[in-house]
Design a protein around this nucleic acid. Sequence first.
DNA 1: CAGTATCCGACCGGATACTG
DNA 2: CAGTATCCGGTCGGATACTG
Lengths: 120, 120
Amino acid sequence: MNYNEFKYCGLNVALGALSGKWKPIILYYLFHQEEIRFTELWRAIPKVAKKVLLEQLKQMEQDGLLLREEKNGFPPEVWYRISEKGRALGPALAALESWANEYAAEEVDLLKIRRKVTLS
Amino acid sequence: MNYNEFKYCGLNVALGALSGKWKPIILYYLFHQEEIRFTELWRAIPKVAKKVLLEQLKQMEQDGLLLREEKNGFPPEVWYRISEKGRALGPALAALESWANEYAAEEVDLLKIRRKVTLS
DNA sequence: CAGTATCCGACCGGATACTG
DNA sequence: CAGTATCCGGTCGGATACTG
């Protein structure tokens, strides 16, 4: 595999779909809650700006990780749920987590972490 | 698991260690090449600035993903190789890759992707 | 050859106010 | 309530020149 092949390889696609400050925690709630309303999710995650949360949800929807259901009416009511594609990420996420638990047991203050996962 | 626990969970640690534009491709070479010299790696990855490549290698070394061996003398000669901890990421990376191959078969132009994976 | 020092642009995430 | 519009600051990555 040379560089040009690598650019398109699946690993980068997967990491790209996970790239976003709040996506892991969003996935966590979607995995454990079957269906969650926007404001509920927003309140569950303190310190995230509404705009940013919406951006990341939109990206995840475009990537097919979650489903967005809008129940029309007023006031608006939007529910998010994990998609099949998103749920299929479960094993990979579990593998990452168990790796960290085995090899990086020390807690890390993630408030200080700020590294792109982006690709080229 | 509430928000504060989540901040420290293993998934975020793992994604943090993978967060960096060139880390996946660096890992690729380390997985397949046993030992690789800096310039060789640099030449293998076109379009990456030497400074940036060094930064990411240093982060990966600090995270314990790779080992850096400096053979003193002149000219300097530095070899990088995967560590045990780094190699242990293999299954998780393979899981991500197979997920992408199954669910995101369409190729994506990664040159256009630029999303942080960062955490909070 | 490996690494450092600068400078810079782009982008991401944060804060706030506003709309339908 | 869900979403948009602005504005802003920090940080990451890119380019280049330089050093030991």
